[in-house]
Amino acid sequence: MSSNLETLSPRLQETLADRLLKLVERLGEVTIEVGAKHLREVMLTLRDHRGLEFDQLIDLCGMDYSAYGDGRWEGKRFAVAYHLLSVRNNQRVRVRVFAEDDDYPRVATVVDIWPVANWFEREAFDLFGILFDGHPDLRRILTDYGFIGHPFRKDFPLSGNVEVRYDPEQGRVIYQPVTVEPREITPRIVREENYGG
């Protein structure tokens, strides 16, 4: 993706040293994994350190790994993936941080580092229920006012839990449990390697 790929990985290793849990270079992309407690330090370094200068947070998204590979997953359940872009050096990096607690996922906010994170973190909170410590205004953003649950978690059904309809007797719109049956047209299959040649 960028011409500086060869220099980026060693530079990251050198700068972040032991705060770096994992570094993967694949398909021309660099992915690093950091611990939740070092997140803010690492992010500040990534933004301000000479030669890194990731001045733009392109994307931030929540991840729920609980159903990964049909139950093969053994690590933590929730993660946040950050996609950073350096306009100055024309390079990208992906940062992944796993939330320590599966039942109460919390990650530090990066709103004060990149203001654009504000809505992205609200989205991750809304859809995955990941809490961002220090976020100034952590409200739901995409779902309805008064929505219950976090729809992008793997245990949330595709058809949802409630549906709305107009009730002529009460003369207003009411919520009721969904009446549609969940169905799967194409089953999800993970094949072994080299299946079918």
């Binding site: 994307d59 990964y68 993936a81 809505w119 999800r188 993970v190």
Partner: peptide, 24 residues
Amino acid sequence: YLVSDGANKPYRLKIRAPGFAHLM
């Protein structure tokens, strides 16, 4: 942003929409 676990469906698909950041 596409994450695949080897299945015939994406494991996670994240769409980075430019308008989302602009409206913020």
